[in-house]
Each structure stands twice: as C-alpha cells, then as structure tokens.
Amino acid sequence: MAEFLQLVFSGLTVGAVYALVALGFTLIYNASDVINFAQGDFVMIGGMGTVFLAAAGIALPLAALIAIVGAVLVGLLLHRLAIEPARGASPVALIMITIGASIFIKGVAQIVFDKQFHSLPAFSGDAPIAVGGATILPQSLWVLGVALALFVALFLFLEKTLLGKALLATAANRLAARLVGVNVTIILALAFGVSAAIGAIAGVVVTPITLTRYDVGTLFALKGFAAAMVGGMGNPLGAVVGGLLIGLLEAFGAGYISSTYKDAVAFVVILLVLFFMPRGLFGGRSVERV
C-alpha cells in the first residue's frame, strides 16, 4: 500500500507537468489548428533560463520571472517569424514548422546554455513529508499547487473574460471572429504567449525534481502530446486528466514493471487511444475537425 501511494505521488507530480504541457498544446491548437511541437522547449527555457540566471547571482524568484518572460518572447517570436508568415498553409505544414522551430531552439540552447544536466534547489527544502507510510517531497506540492493555480487561472480567463471568449470564438469560427472585429493575429499571438508562459512556469517548478538539459523539451512535448490526445485534442479538461493519467501510468509502469520502459508507457497509451477511441476521452465535439 505504501509503495502504491508512493507511486501515486510521483505519478501525479510528473503528470501535473505533462498536463501543463498538454494545456499549452490545447490552447494553441484551439486558436489555430496547429499542434506546436516546440511546446516542450518552453519547459526547457523556463528551467535552463532560471538555472543560468540564478548561477549568475540573480535571486531565484527574479531569475524565474526573467526566464518565463524570455520564454514568452520566444513564443511570440515563434508565432511572428514562423507561423504568421505561413498563414493559410495546411496544418500539417505548420506542424512541421513547429518541429523545425523546436530543433532550432534546442540548437540555440546548446550554445547559449550548455550540454550538461542542471538542477535547481527545491523551493522549500528537501525534507520529505510522510503521508500514509509514503513520503512526498515539498517540491511535489509546489508542482501540484502551481499546476492547479495555472489551470484555474486559464479556466477563468477562457470562461469569464471577453478576450478568453474571443479566443474560443476564433477557434470555433475564424471568419465569424474576424467579422465581429476580433483581430485573429493578436489572438494567435496571445495563445502562443500564454502557452509559452505555462510551459516555462512548469519548467521552473519541475526542474528541482527532474533536472533539465537543452533537449528535455522533446520528451515533455511527446508526453504532453500524448496527454492531449488521450484527453481529446482541444479540450482543456481532457488535457489535465490526460496528463495526470499518463503520469500515473508511467509511475506504475516504472514501479511495477521496469523503469527501463518508463518512457514507453506514454506511447503505448497513445497507440491504444488512437486505435480504440481516436477522439480521446473527452473529444466528443471534435467531429467537424475530421
């Protein structure tokens, strides 16, 4: 039982990060039909940026803030320089552009940062908290708390503000959005900026647990993509449930089968979902997208 609980804790922690990456996918997909495979690199920029700024002597909170702002700038540039000029291209072409952008970002990160693994000190110490025979790290609580706060903030933004509604409206019908006076270019830029911020924040809080390197974005992007697909691409709630599910399955796979196959779990799940319920768990409304 204690072992089970331990796996649940570690699964939820890493799952919360996948959920945040999946939320980033969801936001951009909804606004533009693009699946942004550079999403994981925002996580890397958040983590690596904070590590290097902190190493340069800047206080951790400020370093994190600067790294997040930097990631947002990268997100906006990605939209402005790579996506916007290709407006009107097919979604597949746009997706390939994001894969290219992801490779480019990793290449630049190797030069700007380095090729080593890095970590950050845990925000509130390393003393594990005992819960029901298992232990949970304070940093895990940070990850879960921040993920919850971001999810609530995103929900309130989309459901309670007119700008959020405009983003949903652009997703539902771009022509009509333009006809009511929504500037869809700015909405898309907003989606990229917010997604980058979410990814970078996830990167900051998870780095003390998982470490970071210039290329960690790839796995985060693939797992986050799997999470978004499991939940039903385009559904924010599905992204969260999918992320937590992938995280839990991965932890159980590593704990009960073999940690060698940890990374394979996400891909087995995605294959099963694509075979048996291609619209995902919550993807009922995406009929017209086929």
């Binding site: 949903l168 409206a169 539902a172 022509l175 009509a176």
Partner: peptide
C-alpha cells in the same frame, strides 16, 4: 457562422 460551442449570450457579447 455562429460560434457553435459558445452560448447564445456569449455569441451576442462577442
């Protein structure tokens, strides 16, 4: 060309 998933009132507000 209504915003299908959004409510009637949200359509009007937009």
């Amino acid at each position: 060309q209504v915003f299908g998933p959004l409510s009637v009132e949200d359509n009007l507000r937009l």
